[in-house]
Design a protein around this nucleic acid. Sequence first.
DNA 1: ACCTTGACTAGAT
DNA 2: AATCTAGCCAAGG
Length: 108
Amino acid sequence: MTTITTQANQNRERIWQIVSQIPPGKVASYGQIATLAGLPRGARLVGHVMNKLPQETRLPWHRVINSQGKISLPVGSAAHTEQKARLIDEGIIFNHERISLVHYGWQP
DNA sequence: ACCTTGACTAGAT
DNA sequence: AATCTAGCCAAGG
């Protein structure tokens, strides 16, 4: 098994690493993750990486939302429903589909 | 190799 | 508050 370290692989691993640090009951935005991973304008890449996570991943992907405090997945989709349920389980309160970043935003 | 598509965002209008 | 726009990075056609 040869180990190939492309730039894309490194970026992906940095993103995984940051996401794994978000504590329960807190949320972080795509842009915030990107910045912490050393990719200041890579918000979109974070979304792409989340989208490609294996179904059985143990990463707390549900704690990643957009800068408006909303879930970016399509409303009504199974994924959106699961994400919302997981967040509510952790004690997060939604107000009109929005999460208060002031109260629940992760401060590393 | 070229073009389009996203779990995006800050800034301008 | 609602829209637009340009910028970013990887993947897929």
